[in-house]
Design a protein around this nucleic acid. Structure first.
Lengths: 262, 262
DNA sequence: TGATTTTGTCTCTTACAAGAGACGAGTGTA
DNA sequence: TACACTCGTCTCTTGTAAGAGACAAAATCA
């Protein structure tokens, strides 16, 4: 319900930018930096998150002092800091699934030569948590941390397994149902896909995110029925039936291996 | 000057806990979780950071919603969340030195079999940014993210190269000068060590952190004279002169390689 | 079983942080 | 040389978030 805050960089946001809580501003700043993926001047940052300049200066100073952000050597632009890296490593350490998942993904893409990813739900959004590029001449795009509408992906269909239709509806906006090429998915079809994927224990989508790839995904379970993550392979759309089948088998095997330990 | 906030879990903190800014509370919470290295109940968390319970609940909810923290499945305890991991990866991506440094460290410990580390200053504190365990039967302790008083380490002597004595004094508390075994270092000796290390271009300390290891370190420069990081090897204290020399040579070579690109 | 602590939620007050805006010092650019 | 920027710092006001505390419900203990 109130996850709207995180989602939009500057969406509705009510009428004006009345008095906003400092912490929220900070969360917006972090999210903004995450999307820009580069250091940015404080003035621009203020514009970007739609915050008053004076406030932004104050907050950024706090964050820099704390080490969550770092000032570029030019003394103006800022980006993520070492502290966030350390906290992130703490997260990895405390999270078996992620640690082992990264490993498996790296193995998988080395063995198959295909792009491989570990995906999870991140506050209601589909997120590529770790990606390994594979060895194809054309590097199939996909960066760690990227967030994509659930209906565009095979993993999305697995991650929502077991949820009520109403819940699914709540997590998918109308925009999400519009594919990159302009086609519009029907929510009912999406829900049906999810149910089907849950039964078959894997999912394949073709030409959804772009016209040249298909996506194979298998679920990683934390408890019977509870999908914690997915592993997936992104392969050229003209990959043969046979090889696709092999890859799915391999993928399901590795995903199942990840599922073993709680 | 005001880095005191991060250092002490519950130190002086002035008389009472008058009205504290939400953001600061959050920073304390993160730091607290970083030191405990495990999920913790919200009540305990409030105690730990010395914050009112009601406030803590509010802040934690915000952070969980934002994905910076995650609620354990028991629905009470919290720990770092996926978002922090993603931000951390952004940091790595945007930071050539760290990315390549991790690589070099991993290589180095594989080649030598010794524990190897990449270290940096983190808001005035010595921090092990990345560590690779080596293959010795006794795993020499050292975890990523660990913070240690500067005077206890060889790297510390290199990282402070070029600073004025006054600056050094400001970054080193009296407690920092007391070694784990109770011996007390003289500040002047420490300052002298730093000057010497700068000239020789490497540093070796024996039996400082513990009686069984010595630490070899070499500086990574971001600009002529500016020490950005150090690489170091932690080896048994009885390692021969000859092998120590070899290792230092190797270390300096790799550190220099890291120094090349800005 | 009742006594005691802990947990999560709510309400109300006021101390104080967020924000508006002014300012002087830089930096282009016409 | 003026003009139009942006940058970093300050001051003052007021809307509001931090905090104290009360509660019911759940858990823990004896």
């Amino acid at each position: 319900m109130q996850d709207g805050n995180a989602s939009a960089v500057s969406a509705g946001e009510k009428i004006s930018g009345s008095r906003e809580k400092g912490l929220n501003r900070v969360l917006e700043i972090l999210e903004f930096l995450h999307t820009t993926q580069r250091a940015i001047g404080i003035g621009d940052l203020a514009k970007g998150v739609n915050a008053p300049r004076s406030t932004t200066y104050t907050l950024v100073r706090s964050l820099v002092d704390a080490g969550l952000l770092e000032m570029e050597s030019d003394g103006n632009r800022v980006y993520f800091g070492k502290k966030l890296y350390l906290y992130g490593m703490d997260y990895v350490r405390g999270n078996d699934l992620l640690r082992r998942g990264r490993q498996e993904v790296d193995n998988l893409s080395r063995e198959t030569g295909e792009t491989s990813e570990l995906c999870m739900l991140q506050s209601g959004r589909y997120t590529i948590v770790h990606a390994s590029p594979g060895t194809r001449p054309f590097r199939i795009s996909s960066a760690t941390g990227l967030q994509i509408p659930l209906p565009w992906t095979a993993s999305g269909r697995l991650l929502l397994a077991g949820l009520e239709k109403a819940e699914i509806e709540g997590m998918v906006s109308d925009d999400d149902l519009v594919l990159p090429d302009g086609r519009k998915l029907r929510l009912d079809d999406f829900v049906a896909d999810i149910a089907k994927a849950q039964v078959t224990g894997y999912c394949v989508t073709s030409g959804l995110v772009d016209a040249y790839t298909k996506c194979l995904a298998a679920p990683v379970l934390s408890a019977p029925g509870k999908v914690e993550a997915t592993m997936c392979l992104v392969v050229p759309i003209d990959t043969s039936e046979e090889r696709t089948g092999e890859l799915i088998g391999l993928l399901r095997d590795r995903a199942a291996r990840l599922s073993i330990a709680a």
